[in-house]
Design a protein around this nucleic acid. Structure first.
Lengths: 187, 187
DNA sequence: TCACCATTAGACCAATCGGTCTAGTCTTTC
DNA sequence: GAAAGACTAGACCGATTGGTCTAATGGTGA
C-alpha cells in the first residue's frame, strides 16, 4: 500500500505536471492516462465527473505542496524576511528543476477551461489557503493579524508576478531577488 | 477604409478577447471566426501560419495597448508614483469592464500552447517592451537608467500578480491598492 | 467455492479540432 | 472591358478531443 502511489495519486500527480506545462485545455486525457499508466476506465471511476474533477484535485494537491514548502521555510525562521527569503530560494530551485520541462507558475494557471465559476472558486480557495498559511507565521513572528494577512498577500502577489516573469525569461534570478524587491536591498 | 476595422483587425481583436477569456487552447478557430464575422479562408490569407500566427499578432496588439495606457498615465504625472497610481486605476477600471466577460491577466497568459519557444519568446518581448516603456518615464522623472529599469520591473511584477489575484476574487481592489503596497501607505 | 463489489481495461462514439483547398467575388490597373 | 491579383467564402479532411459503456479481473467475507 505504501509501496507505490495509488492509481488515484498517480493520476493527480501526472495531471498536475501536465496541466502546469501545457494548461488545462492544452492537455489531453490520453496524455495524462499514458503518463500515469492508467486506463480510461480508472479515471472515470475515481473522478466520475472527469477532467474538471481531476483538475480540482490537482489544484488542491498543488496548494498543499506549496503550503508544505511554506512550513519548511518558516519553521526555523527568526523573522518574516528570513522565512520569505528561504521560500523564494526553495522555489527558485524548484523552478530550475522544472524549467527544463517548461513548467508554469505554480498554480492558478490551470484555471482556464470551461465551467468558469467552479475553476475560479477553486483558484480563490487555493490562494486563500496559501495566504492564510503564510499569515499564520507572520502572526507567530509578532505581527498583528491584519498586518500579517497584508504581508502575506503582498508576498503572494509578488511571488506570482515574479514566477511569471521568471518563466518568460527562463531565469530564476527574479525569484531570488524578490525579497530585496519587497523589503529593500539586502541587509 | 477608416469606416470599419479591416478584416485583419477584426480577427486580431476577436482573437485577443477570446484568448484572454479562455486561453489559447481553450479557444477554437470557429469561435474566433464567428466572433469576427470572417470566413476561414480569410484567416489563412492574412495569417498563413494559422492560429499561432494570429496569437502572436494578438499579443503584439495587446502589448501596444498597454503601452498606450502607460503613456496616458505618465504624460502628465509629476512623479513616478503618480504615474503608477494612474495606471493602476485605469487598469482597474478596465478590469471592471472586462470582468463581466471573465477576462484574464492582460497578457502573458496566451502563452500556453504548442511551439513553446516561439510563444515564450513572444511573451518575453512583450514584457520587455512594456518594462522599457515604463522605464523611459522613470528616467524622464529623474531616475538613473538602472533605477528606472528596476522600478519598472518591480512594478510589472506587482501588477501581474495583482491582476491574477484580482481575477480569482473578481474584485479590482487589489489593483487599486498596488501603489500602497509597493510604495507604502498613501501619503 | 461462491457471490459481491471495487477497480481495471480498452473498444468505441459523436463532436470538434486546426488546417487545406477550390471557387467565386471584388478591386485595381492598363 | 479584360486581365490579374487580393481577398472572401465555406465545403471538406484526418486527427484528436472528452466521455460512455461493456467486459474482465482481483480481492474479500461467508
Amino acid at each position: 500500500m505504501s509501496d507505490e502511489p495509488s492509481t488515484r495519486d498517480r493520476l493527480v500527480q501526472a495531471a498536475t505536471r501536465l496541466f502546469r506545462q501545457r494548461g488545462y485545455d492544452g492537455t489531453g486525457l490520453t496524455e495524462i492516462l499514458t503518463e500515469a499508466g492508467v486506463p480510461k476506465g480508472s479515471l472515470y471511476h475515481h473522478f466520475p465527473e472527469g477532467k474538471a474533477n481531476l483538475a480540482c484535485a490537482a489544484a488542491d494537491w498543488t496548494a498543499s505542496e506549496i503550503i508544505r514548502v511554506i512550513d519548511d521555510s518558516f519553521r526555523t525562521a527568526p523573522d518574516w524576511r528570513h522565512g520569505i527569503t528561504t521560500f523564494c530560494y526553495k522555489m527558485a530551485k524548484l523552478f530550475d528543476i522544472l524549467e527544463s520541462a517548461d513548467a508554469c507558475p505554480i498554480f492558478g494557471l490551470l484555471f482556464e477551461g470551461p465551467d468558469h465559476d467552479r475553476f475560479r472558486t477553486q483558484a480563490e480557495q487555493s490562494f486563500d489557503r496559501i495566504i492564510a498559511a503564510a499569515a499564520r507565521y507572520g502572526q507567530a513572528l509578532g505581527m498583528t493579524p491584519e498586518a500579517a494577512h497584508d504581508a502575506a498577500e503582498t508576498f503572494i502577489i509578488g511571488f506570482q508576478g515574479s514566477w511569471t516573469l521568471a518563466r518568460t525569461r527562463r531565469k530564476s534570478d527574479v525569484l531570488r531577488n524578490l525579497p530585496n524587491r519587497l523589503y529593500g536591498a539586502k541587509s
